Amino acid sequence: MCRWLAYSGTPILLDSILYRPAHSLIDQSLHAKMGVETTNGDGFGVGWYGEDTDSPAVVRDIGPAWSDRNLREIARHVVSPLFFGHIRASTGTAVQQTNCHPFRHGPWMWMHNGAIDGFHLIRRDLAMAVDPGLFADIEGSTDSEMMFYLALTLGLEEDPPGAVARMAGLVERTGRARGVEFPLQMTVAVTDGVRLWAFRYSSQKESRSLFYSSRVETLRSLHPDLAFLRELSDDARLIVSEPLGDLPGAWNAVPEGSYGVVQPEGDRMADFVPV
């Protein structure tokens, strides 16, 4: 499987989230505590939004994140109010740049932890469901990218929660028709550069771990001595595969079968049910 994080809030250096925490994403690439694998060394990717562009920048490579000098260089110089970070442990598809997350289409970014069980059996069926106008943009061979393009086909740009629910329902129906008992395992993050959605769901109701950070004002009241909290805006939020440290009160588990959205008009959480 994989580990990922998504940040939205005060513009910050990528380094402050990717490298500096005690159990940072880079540390998790070697020492994951809650993933299926301890080591996530089959590639990495970061994506971020700048001030003057409608499309995110994406940098991906096939080497392990813990030793990549270019990633460290980027992290020390790039400032962004919204970015994704992902470290990959392949579930069977090739270790190649086009299979590394996050995936991008127009203003949208997508990343995933989990798998479509029996993907080799139903890959053609799912591919045939992708809008022909989008199909040529699929670059890699992963189930994760296929899920992204299915969601785009099923209305992601107009209704992200509905599109992801329709995608999940399609995957489950297709898998079960081929004899796969529990077709889908997913924690997914998707953003249009303004809003950030995160989903936690699995057919078996035993989803991979996912956490969101407490409100900054709550953390300030719990830890008034921590100077870095005074630098963050009240709307700053992190969503992570596993906590970046053990600061009391900082992390909350995303409930099984649910999704949340971080947005200017206020965060919201709701049940997630495939359609």
Rank of each mutant, 00 (worst) to 15 (best):
C2D: 08
R3I: 09
D15A: 14
P21D: 13
P21T: 06
S24Y: 00
S24H: 05
I26S: 02
D27H: 15
Q28H: 10
H31M: 02
K33L: 12
G35V: 04
D42R: 01
G43E: 05
G43S: 07
E51G: 01
E51L: 12
T53I: 01
P56S: 04
A57N: 10
V58Q: 03
I62W: 06
P64F: 07
A65W: 11
W66A: 14
E73T: 09
I74C: 07
S80T: 01
S80C: 01
G85Q: 05
T93F: 13
A94L: 12
Q97D: 13
N99S: 12
C100A: 15
P102Y: 12
R104W: 00
H105S: 14
P107N: 12
W110F: 15
M111R: 05
N113H: 10
G118M: 09
I122K: 02
L126F: 07
M128R: 14
M128G: 00
A129H: 11
A129F: 01
L134W: 02
L134H: 02
D143W: 04
D143S: 08
S144R: 07
E145V: 09
M146W: 00
A151W: 02
L154N: 05
L156Q: 05
L156N: 05
E157S: 06
P161S: 08
P161Q: 04
A165H: 04
M167E: 12
E172D: 14
E172F: 03
A177V: 06
G179K: 05
F182D: 13
T187A: 12
V194D: 13
S203C: 09
K205Y: 13
E206R: 14
S213E: 12
S213Q: 14
S213A: 13
S214F: 01
V216I: 15
T218G: 04
R220F: 05
A227R: 12
S233M: 07
D235E: 13
D235V: 03
R237N: 03
I239M: 09
A250D: 04
A253P: 10
S258F: 04
G260N: 01
V262G: 00
P264V: 07
R268W: 10
D271I: 00
